[in-house]
Amino acid sequence: TTYKLILNGKTLKGETTTEAVDAETAERVFKEYAKKNGVDGEWTYDDATKTFTSTE
Rank of each mutant, 00 (worst) to 15 (best):
T1V: 11
T1M: 11
T1I: 14
T1F: 13
T1E: 12
T2A: 05
K4W: 10
K4C: 07
K4A: 04
K4V: 09
L5S: 01
L5E: 02
I6Y: 06
I6R: 05
L7Y: 11
L7N: 01
L7E: 01
N8W: 11
N8D: 11
G9R: 03
G9I: 04
G9Y: 12
K10H: 14
K10S: 11
T11P: 04
T11I: 11
L12D: 05
L12K: 09
L12S: 09
K13D: 05
K13A: 08
K13W: 11
G14V: 15
G14N: 11
E15W: 14
E15T: 13
E15S: 10
T16E: 06
T16P: 02
T16K: 09
T16W: 15
T17Y: 14
T17D: 05
T17L: 09
T17A: 07
T17W: 14
T17V: 08
T17N: 07
T17R: 07
T18Y: 14
E19S: 10
E19A: 08
A20C: 09
A20V: 04
A20D: 02
A20H: 02
V21C: 13
V21Y: 12
V21G: 11
V21H: 12
D22P: 00
D22F: 03
D22R: 03
D22H: 03
A23D: 06
A23R: 14
A23Y: 15
A23K: 15
A23V: 14
E24I: 11
E24A: 13
T25I: 07
T25K: 06
A26Y: 00
A26N: 00
A26D: 01
E27K: 10
E27A: 10
R28D: 05
V29R: 09
F30T: 01
K31F: 05
K31R: 15
K31I: 08
E32R: 05
Y33P: 00
Y33W: 13
Y33N: 02
Y33I: 09
A34H: 01
A34L: 10
A34M: 07
A34P: 01
K35E: 11
K35L: 13
K35F: 12
K35S: 10
K36P: 01
K36T: 10
K36C: 11
K36E: 12
N37I: 12
N37A: 14
N37F: 15
N37E: 09
N37D: 03
G38P: 00
G38W: 05
V39P: 02
V39K: 02
V39Y: 11
V39L: 10
D40E: 13
D40Y: 14
D40C: 13
G41K: 02
G41H: 04
E42N: 11
W43C: 03
W43H: 01
T44W: 08
T44A: 10
T44G: 06
Y45L: 01
D46I: 04
D46G: 00
D46F: 03
D46P: 00
D46M: 03
D47P: 14
D47Q: 10
D47G: 08
A48G: 08
A48W: 06
A48L: 12
T49G: 04
T49S: 10
T49Q: 06
T49A: 05
K50H: 12
T51V: 06
T53S: 07
T53D: 02
S54G: 05
S54Y: 13
T55F: 09
T55M: 07
E56L: 06
E56R: 03
E56G: 05
E56I: 07
E56W: 09
